[in-house]
Design a protein around this nucleic acid. Structure first.
Lengths: 119, 119
DNA sequence: TCCTTAGTTCAAAAGTTATTGAACAATTGG
DNA sequence: CCAATTGTTCAATAACTTTTGAACTAAGGA
């Protein structure tokens, strides 16, 4: 029941950049980064789009090596692959997240601001 | 005869990431970065693809705000918009270029290595 | 067991991006 | 003026990506 993930050295720069070049996926990554260490299940992202489409975007992120998904019961716990991405592309994730943090045009999660979500 | 460029604050993160998520365009950006300050004309990139397709990719880079194209006679002199990109997305361009520098899968320009090209 | 929750898969449709070739425009040099 | 050089535009096609809904699986609780 383990989902397919690329190994760290299979992660490709153009693929990662392409995958991040989508507002929905960028919003997911930004949110994961804002809650780093806390694994999220997919339902957290349901205000972004439909369940089916979310499944598609989360698969893209996972297949690109940006996120890791662990199957736990009926949930998938999603985390950012920060360690692997930092090793492979130093500084990239941080600069993307910092830039995304300022971007009012990106969709947000949780109804309000990313900073304001949850306790 | 000035070509359309976005202003610095019109440059959008997802659009820049999407535009960089293409091996041909990433190769162009990497090459421009390796020759920073030296304006290139389009013909430098002709080993990557056809003239028509190159025109298309260079337009994408320009419209995203990644490059600037200045019309000089019958040439366009292409430069990286490093200052604007750094202001807008600090560290992003550097980390992308550094990561692209290690990437043997990206096409190269000049017949051999980027480091080895020209004098 | 039956129902609910969480998420996937599949196939179709819609939309977007990339690639091509032929024709075009502008500048420069003879 | 004529030709060459440098690059663009246009329309067609090919190739991908995104979105959708209906049907599905797998786990957990009553």
């Amino acid at each position: 029941m383990t989902l397919p993930h690329p190994t760290a050295d299979q992660i490709s720069l153009p693929i990662v950049l392409g995958v991040l070049g989508d507002p929905t996926r960028l919003a997911i990554v930004r949110y994961l980064a804002s809650k780093e260490g806390v694994p999220m299940n997919c339902s957290k992202f349901l205000d972004l789009t439909s369940k089916t489409n979310l499944s598609y975007h989360l698969a893209k992120l996972r297949e690109a090596g940006v996120t890791r998904a662990e199957v736990v019961g009926t949930s998938r716990l999603i985390t950012l692959r920060r360690d692997d991405l930092d090793r492979r592309f130093p500084g990239l994730l941080d600069s993307v997240i910092a830039a995304a943090g300022d971007d009012a045009a990106l969709p947000t999660i949780g109804g309000h601001d990313i900073e304001a979500a949850d306790a």
